[in-house]
Structures are given as C-alpha cells and as structure tokens.
Design a binder for these strands. Sequence first.
DNA 1: TGCGGTCTCCACCGGCAGGAGGATCCCCGC
DNA 2: GCGGGGATCCTCCTGCCGGTGGAGACCGCA
Lengths: 226, 226
Amino acid sequence: MTAQPIRVLLVDDQPLLRTGFRMILEAETDIAVVGESGDGEQAVADARALQPDVVLMDIRMPRVDGVQATRQITGAARETAPRVLVLTTFDLDEYVVEALRAGASGFLLKDVPAEDLVTAIRTVSRGDAVVAPSITRRLLDMFASRFPAADSPTPANLAHLTDREREVLTLVARGYSNAEIAAELVVSETTVKTHVGNVLTKLGLRDRVQAAVYAYESGLVQPGAL
Amino acid sequence: MTAQPIRVLLVDDQPLLRTGFRMILEAETDIAVVGESGDGEQAVADARALQPDVVLMDIRMPRVDGVQATRQITGAARETAPRVLVLTTFDLDEYVVEALRAGASGFLLKDVPAEDLVTAIRTVSRGDAVVAPSITRRLLDMFASRFPAADSPTPANLAHLTDREREVLTLVARGYSNAEIAAELVVSETTVKTHVGNVLTKLGLRDRVQAAVYAYESGLVQPGAL
DNA sequence: TGCGGTCTCCACCGGCAGGAGGATCCCCGC
DNA sequence: GCGGGGATCCTCCTGCCGGTGGAGACCGCA
C-alpha cells in the first residue's frame, strides 16, 4: 500500500502472545514488527530506540504497567510520538479511562479477530482512533452521564437571567469578589451586588458559593476553562 | 443469522440517499427496512409507530434536527428504545457531542463503505456502539483534554490536605454553609471553620467561593456528581 | 517517653456579602 | 407618548465568613 511499511512494536509480558501477534502481523506486507518488549519499562526504552509508528500495548504488565508506559511514550514528543494501541483482556472501565488520559489511540479486546487487528493498526497509524464496540458503548455512556443533558446547560432558570446577570455569574464562578467583578466590568460594586442579588433570587440560591456551584453544574462554565 | 431480521428506520431529508441506503440494506437477509422519514418530526412519530431496532439518522434535517429527534427517540423508554446510528457528512465536533448527549449509539460518516454500514447496524442492534475512526480520534482527544492528566486531580496542593479537610472542601463545593457542614459531619461549627481556614491557607485561596471553584477545577468534585 | 500531626473546640473581631428600599437613565414596543 | 424591562447607582443594616490566638485529646512514630 505505502512504500514504507508500518513499524510496529509489540508489548506483552507473555512471549507466546507476542509470537502469535507477530505471526499475524508479518503476514501483512505493509506491516513490519520492529521489536518486542516484555514489560512497560522496556517498552518505553524500546519505543525511544526503535521509533515505531504503532505500539501494540498490553495493559497489564509487571514493573511499569501499560498505562504508565503509554503516558511516557505518548507524552514525549506529541507530534512524532508513536501511536499506542492498547489491548485489554476484559473491558475494564478502570484501565480504559486511565489509558485514555494517558494518550492511547485505541483499545481492543485480546480476542479481536486477526483481520480487525490489522485494520486497527492501519487506522491508528493514519492518526485515527479505534475502539472496540463494547468499549465504545461504555465510553459513550460515560460521556453522556458526564454531560447530563443537552438542555440542562440552560435549565430554564438560566434562560431567565439577563445577559449581564449571566456575565456576572460566570465571574462569580471564577472566584471573583464583588469588587473584582466591578473592576472587571467597569461598573460600581453596588451594581454588581444588585446583579448578584438578582441571580440568587432568580435561581433560588442562597449565596455566591451556590451560584458558583450552579454555574459548574449547569454547564455555564466548565472545568479547564479557567 | 437471527430468526428476526433487524428492523431499520431510515431518516434523511434526501429521498435519493434513503433509496441508496435501502438498496444496500435490503441486500442483507438479516436486515429489514421498515420505514423512511423525511424530517426529524416525522422520524420521532415513525419510531414510535414502527418500533424499529435501529434508526439510521441524518443529523442535518429540516424542522426537527437529528439531535433533537435522537433525544426524543432514545429518551422515551430507555430499555426498549431504538438504537440511533447517526450519519454525518463532516465530522463536526459540535453535532457529535450533542448527539452523544442525546443518546446516540454511534456515528458514521456518510461516505462509509456499504459493508461497514451493514456491520455497524448489526453492532448497534446488539447494544454495542460504533464510531467512525476519525470521529473517535476527536472523542478521545476531548476526553483527554477534559480529564487533563491522571495525577492533576491531585495537583500537589490537594495532597497536602488532610482527609478531613478534603472532606470539608467537597462540602463547601456543594454550596454548604459552615453550619450545614457542621451538621453533616456532626461537629461544631467552630471546627468546620478551622478546617475551612486550613484549606484556604494551604491552597492559597481567599474565600470559600474560590475553594469551590478549586474543587471543580482540580477534579475533586465533578459536574453531574450532585 | 516525647514529639508532631490531626481533629476537636472556644472567643473575639473586622469585613464582605446579601437583603430591603428607592432612584435614575435608556431603549424598545404598544 | 407612555409603560416596562434592563442596567446603573445609592444607603442602611444584619449576619456569616474568615483571621488570629489559644487549647485539650488522641494517635503514631521515633
């Protein structure tokens, strides 16, 4: 397909499994297994030395586990870093989320059919991502639960606020005092207090702390936006 | 494969596209197209009337868009509700996230190969999820960025807090007053004030509002957990 | 045994927040 | 033209919050 074959590094603590994967992959002309690692520590070193395009990584391993290894491999040089395709025996949420944060480009169950594995490696090497269907299901569920609903970001009450009030609310949710908000908006502190008071009344809240919480819970402001 | 074929409802405002999909799907013995809808409003009605297993939903449509329609279709009876497989022309983040929240079970680009579409429908009807690789990439990126890192939830400072202090902080982040926290923890308000004061000092914050914000930003508490 | 850390509690005080009540200005729609 | 809503500003007052300083009890570790 391409002139240069896809360079793959196999990482698994079971030599037998590595051999199995190697046989599957070497049957493909566009894929070349450039190395094998028996634990996470070695995987990190090998990834650095061999510069593979894709790392096929078992998640459960001695010494440094797959998540740690993934973090170190993907964390180095974001652009040129190898893509990590994580293999799990079971679709444990725990590991999946962790590996995700660590920068993995995909997740497959170990019982994946040979042809799917090959396809996945090609997909990942292109820069896209692959997730086993059953795991995808869980990811979507997590996503959905974490962002409660599409209209809850504007739970009726929030819509009743004026633009200015909403503006003040977001500043409250950043920990600003009334004086600071006043300075930010170039108005008097009294005005700010009026707005804050209106917000509290309209939303049925007691104090600015609850207002800040409300801002986060409603999606008006989001973590990381700071 | 199964005794009962998978019942599919096609939703797209372009009749030509519907016809194309119908031809592809009817070639499969285990899939039966039970209806077609030209807009979101009709789709919701048809889904109710025809009780399909899978709804193939275009996201951009007149009247009621695909996201709205998805929400209404999946929202009804969570268990028996049809699975919604969303089709997008481009991999627009906007729509994907919205559809996700709305309860979609999958996303495919419209240029998907026929065989992949068929496979996806089977996968979704099983209760699993399918996402096009390029979209999966974006989802994973969003996920990673939303949960910055594995250790950032404990940004050093948070680790300096005692268990009790962390406990108090989470309650502050729920909008509780000192008196309420005292009642909750069955201690005197004085004690609570001490803890809160310690938290503020240790984290370098000014007041409980900033503490609440910090709790959200650090990941100690998360939206939706309320 | 003694030290340090944590949790618990108290009194006192200054300050900002939030409620009540009223006021002006501007813009928009009837 | 007139009413209504929004934004702006003011004063007075109450109360909770947060800071300071101090103290006793418990636990674990040296």
